[in-house]
Amino acid sequence: MLNARRDLSALLDGTAAYLPLPAGDDAEVRRLSTALSLGEPIDDDAALVVSTSGTTGTPKGAIHTAASLRASIDATAAVLGGPGSWLLAMPPHHIAGLQVMLRSLAAGYDPVVLDLAAGFDPAALPALLDSMPGDRRYTSLVPVQLRKALDDPRATAALAEVDAILVGGAATGPALAARALGAGLPIVRTYGMSETAGGCVYDGVPLPAAQMRIAEPNADGVGRVVLGGATLAKGYRNLPDHPAFAEPGWFLTDDLGAVDDGVLQIVGRADEAISTGGLTVVPQVVEAVIGDLPGVAECAVLGLPDDRLGERVVAAIVPQAGETAPDAATVRAAVTDRLDRYAAPREVFVLGALPRRGPGKVDRRALRESLR
């Protein structure tokens, strides 16, 4: 932690520039080092190049200054009620894990670290949370970690005593959020990405340092989410003309959303929409319906190639521990009733787990290949 404290302090001071790399993954280290020009000159005000969580194509690295990182840290502390110590429970080379360390160090505390070498073990949480210093204690989890913690009564009780639990990295379904709130956990659902220094919208409301709007909304108010403000990256390393940063001061996301009375609702992703029989299905809308069914722990909806329809809608379901997943007829009936027949999955696969990428997102490409 001594070297980490020194390096992270230099990052916050703007006196050095870093590219965080994953430990124990030599192939990914080589890939990122080459694509993001490790060791090559960079703008004087750059403090951090952090890779996005995508797994295809050329890796992108968001360039942050000390000012954009500090803006995120200060805004988070203001919204949560003040600075405090943080428990690191996710990989530190992703923006969410890195920000946990930076927030803790900025508050004067070394972060307490959960060893993830053998995976996330909620049984370790009570002792680690009890060891945290300071008047305020925080942590950040991805939804799959939150679900595992809720299955452990001692971990749930320990998490109920912290001041806030940021949940992000992937969508937190309504059923999981309701379960956490019902157990007394002080969760805060966050939305953001590497390009915005991590979460910049908390429970649908932008942080004081952030801005949001909807680009070209349709009749229902749904359009691409655009984010801006002091937490925004300068752009991408080696991609100076990337269209996502074409409008100065704003970042055009691939997420579809709407703003209702100042609160952002994410509908899905523009690049994951399924075209079936000439109609468009947004997977996340269907997932919300399936996620409400008894016995469903999590699910993913995607399109598979189909000679007649172009793509056919399918669903992969992970059942709740000790429960049976709903059958295909039940799933189809629920989706047809709440949405429409064309959105109902034509096949339902029951899996032990969904493949993941980055800090906890479902790896739809890997899932699609396995189901094909």
Rank of each mutant, 00 (worst) to 15 (best):
R70L: 05
G57I: 07
R154I: 01
H242L: 08
L371F: 10
Y342H: 15
L19Y: 11
L87Q: 03
P92D: 10
D163Q: 05
L32R: 05
F245L: 04
D255H: 00
A27C: 00
A27L: 05
P355A: 07
T34K: 15
S85M: 02
S68K: 00
P92H: 12
A219G: 11
L150G: 10
I42V: 15
L11K: 06
A123M: 05
G223L: 02
L98F: 00
R70G: 01
I165C: 09
A117W: 04
S131P: 03
A328Y: 03
D241C: 04
A325P: 13
A149I: 02
L239R: 11
G268S: 02
V267G: 06
L146R: 10
L11Q: 06
N238Y: 00
G61V: 13
I214L: 05
N3D: 13
I290W: 10
S370E: 13
D307P: 12
G182E: 03
A246K: 11
G295H: 08
D115F: 08
V313P: 02
P83G: 05
R308G: 04
D45P: 02
I63T: 13
S131F: 01
A35G: 03
P92F: 01
P248T: 09
R269H: 06
P126H: 02
G198F: 07
P294L: 02
P294S: 03
V282S: 03
G303V: 01
V167S: 14
A170D: 11
G168T: 10
T330D: 04
A219D: 15
D135H: 04
M101S: 15
A210I: 03
T190V: 14
A366E: 14
G277D: 12
